[in-house]
Design a protein around this nucleic acid. Structure first.
Lengths: 353, 353
DNA sequence: AGCGAAAGTGTTAGGGTAAACATAGTTGGT
DNA sequence: ACCAACTATGTTTACCCTAACACTTTCGCT
């Protein structure tokens, strides 16, 4: 259950000095050293200096393990994720880690191998061994369902990038549905009728939501949703999809589920001599910094990762401090970024419908 | 010296159960529970089952702090970085974290705020408090010099992205100089004479090396190095530089210090009606996945982050296990990726020289 | 001067785990 | 049948730190 994998050769950083050593050298009790180390108020200035000198001399460094053992807290939060390969994930981790640092927590990055997915125990073992006070979960909700039974009871958990309103855990996320909606409505507003969607991979929940919301928005506006092509978030998969779309002259706009795939579309359209946005409009999702320098500069939907970070911290605080069992699901709205890859529907293409 | 910042409200995950509880329930000693938890060999099967049942019942989870205290090791490595914003950094962290996980280490992400740079003690405090067995440093060498005096003595350190052959610490890095050289020589081989460089930000050592190596290569080939423009790694800064270059009709090729800035160049050239590669060639550095779908697809220099990860792990192993003081500086060669943003020098532009 | 309060420092007692040693129970060989 | 060699389990102790409490000195006030 909690067996370690055949553990690597163990070792010890030569524990140079403990409090006792410092105490002996400074001629005080170790409790006084502790007070100095923790910045306690009531230590005479001269004593403090003596202790600090002694610390320097012996190269003292507090033992985090002992401290954590005594205090019962690690001041550390585990961030569980599958990949650092996706723009959104990285930006989110970045935002979380800065918030956590501000609040005195360090971040333990727990990168689950994709394959360990199957075995719940794999994930559980890793988790059980990690010394963390709370956990941020960054993978797709449908996977959590398989794992969540195994989160150690009582451990605060906040899930990011979940869409499950019924999760046992609090969640924060970009409002995927709203983002897809504004993108789609913007295209519709430009007069487009045949709007296709280049979706993210099957498994991804955010991909699913963007797709669903696009379809819903189309229907609500009395339009038949166009075809759905499926990529894997990568530019190359967008390029492949672009080949398909290029063969269909009726398509007048494509909503890509992320910017990278949109880049792929642009390349495919360039190669086929299809003009963007004159012949076909393209909109992405993410607003990666590079999107502004695509050719043409890419219209897209911007996510507010900083805001997600703020809310994450708020939710975590609640769970940690108030110990209230209240579960919240918060969504952060996106913003439309209009650049030059979108424009009015082309007359010729409309004529084809 | 090691004072905590005003620490956040402390708390404790309700320490549900310790070994003693499990032991009591299972009717064995806590030592036996320990043996089961660590997969020791000599426990009777029936006992093991009893213990595991008891663990389940009380929701036992080993206390990492106590374990670390006893063992003298955290099985954790600190990864120190300033930003998750750069492609290279993230890819490197990704590679390291996977290697470390394979070797049974968890990763503590220590993101230093840019501003804390000034105060050495800022960085030191963070470090001193982190419970790590070793440290990977991911920032620019010139900054380390200021900090390195403060690494706790005896703590294994491996520096990535350093160029300092004289560092007290072992280092691994992409061979920046070699990468810049092959890019430059490739352009020269295509007949280009007036080759400019779009460099990374002033502070960055890798930027400095790429720039230096470009200049050196030019000189070695009997060419006068072209002008150096300076960006900040962002596509937008590349776009700005592109405006400048577009005004100078003699430039026939640009070597950009990363792909993002190259994207910016491409956009600027598109806007000015300068054809790539017919009028001007552009080459980047990084081989981001999106580079293949730039327009035109971007020629670039690919870094082998996986290899960097392997070597990192190797160096760390040495330091941790052999305890040999030997310091190594390893460089990982890059590879040229030729796509469509580079081509033979244009006759007209050569005529201008 | 005398007394109480505050400031400064020390002592004691764990916190959960695992290494080291100790003991009881079992097996196998003669 | 007896002892050696295991195997399985228990007991003790130490890892390093800090909360809680206890004690001593200093200070301010009457």
């Amino acid at each position: 259950m909690v067996a370690l994998p055949d553990s690597p050769a163990q070792f010890t950083v030569p524990r140079s000095a403990a409090m006792a050593d410092v105490a002996a050298l400074a001629g005080v009790s170790s409790q006084t050293v502790s007070r100095v180390a923790n910045g306690a108020s009531n230590v005479k200035e001269s004593t403090r200096r003596k202790v600090i000198d002694a610390m320097r001399q012996v190269g003292y460094r507090p033992n985090g393990a002992a401290r954590a053992l005594k205090r019962g807290s690690f001041q550390s939060v585990g961030v569980i994720t599958f990949t650092l390969g996706s723009y959104g994930n990285v930006r989110t981790i970045d935002a979380l880690s800065r918030r956590l640092a501000e609040h005195g927590y360090s971040v333990t990055l727990i990168q689950l191998a994709e394959r360990s997915l199957g075995s719940i125990s794999g994930a559980y073992n890793r988790l059980a061994d990690e010394a963390v006070d709370a956990v941020a979960v960054l993978f797709e909700a449908r996977l959590i369902d398989r794992v969540e039974a195994d989160f150690p009871p009582g451990l605060p958990v906040v899930v990011i990038d979940s869409t499950s309103e019924t999760s046992r855990f609090s969640t924060v996320d970009t409002d995927q549905a709203q983002g897809a909606r504004i993108a789609t409505e913007y295209l519709i507003g430009l007069g487009h009728r045949e709007i296709w969607h280049l979706a993210g991979p099957e498994g991804s929940f955010s991909a699913g939501l963007r797709e669903y919301s696009w379809g819903l928005t189309m229907t609500e506006h009395g339009l038949r949703p166009g075809q759905v092509l499926r990529g894997d978030w990568s530019a190359l998969s967008g390029y492949d999809a672009g080949q398909v779309i290029a063969r269909n002259p009726r398509v007048s706009a494509v909503f890509a589920a992320n910017d990278s795939m949109a880049f792929g579309l642009l390349r495919a359209f360039h190669e086929k001599g299809i003009r963007v946005p004159e012949d076909i409009s393209v909109i992405g999702f993410d607003d990666m910094p590079d999107a502004s320098c695509a050719w043409p500069p890419l219209s897209t939907v911007a996510q507010d990762f900083e805001k997600v970070g703020d809310i994450f911290m708020e939710l975590l605080d609640h769970q940690i401090n108030q110990r209230d069992e209240e579960i919240e699901h918060r969504r952060v709205p996106t913003e439309l970024v209009i650049r030059e890859s979108t424009g009015p529907a082309s007359i010729e293409r409309l004529a084809l419908l």
